[in-house]
Amino acid sequence: MNKRAGIGFYIFLVIFVFLVMFPFIWVFLTSIKPVGEIFTSFRWFTTNPTLDSYDAALTNRPLMRYMLNSFVVSSVTTVLSVGCAAFAAYAVTRLPIKGKGLFLGVVLAASMFPQVAVISPIFNIVTELGLRNSYTGLVIPYMTISLPLSIWILSTFFQKIPFELEESAKLDGASPFQTFRKIILPLATPGIFTTAILVFIAAWNEYLFALTINSDDEWRTVPVGISMYQSEYSVPWGDISAATVIVTIPIVVLVLIFQRRIVSGLTSGSVKE
């Protein structure tokens, strides 16, 4: 559809973007208000902007430690999960193995499993292995959560790579693994990159496992850490809004840089081409 966009359309767009972004705008405006003003008025703009809330957010709780934990766990998960998934996707799309349909079916089914149905046995396993409050304890479940998604998206990307290239490589005497490493991987780099971003975001956002397995404050990830800002008796909205702004910035940067890739990753597999 090549409808031309008129002025009414642009007004609609501005309102739409404003409504979607409103929570962020308001939280940002709150984060630079003096704490007293947050509780007394609904004025949008403060006349005395201050960074006190940021200072408090960083000193009252180890927010930077949470960010570090999230970063390490998400990065390691991304590398391992995309690695495993690239192997599996190549085998499923290109190699003559039996039971591909069954394998993909099980993987897809596994992605639908509710996390609450696996959390207690995983908690027992992780406790027995002494992996509570560690990075490894989170990376293992996260890899499994993200694996189905990765295999699914990567096999869509691999499918699009022309077969001719591999066949000529084969004729030139390349082994199957060489074909994978030298032909498929370089060609699939954009797809792998897209998958990696989605896995990273999924691992960064995970809550249930992080809450259960890493219960020490020192090992908490961002989502769990931030939900601990509120206590039973007081809700420090100034700290919370400042902390929210701080943890949202990396995501905003990631989205701004990679938005095209994210969209292509999200929509691959849901649309027949």
């Binding site: 929570p23 956002n205 809550y207 931030i226 989205v255």
Partner: peptide, 19 residues
């Protein structure tokens, strides 16, 4: 528009819930 619709999706649900 694309970025503004992606950001709510990309932030952690727990952070959105706090907001």
């Amino acid at each position: 528009v694309r970025a503004s619709v992606l950001i709510p999706w990309a932030i952690p649900t727990a952070v959105a819930a706090m907001m």
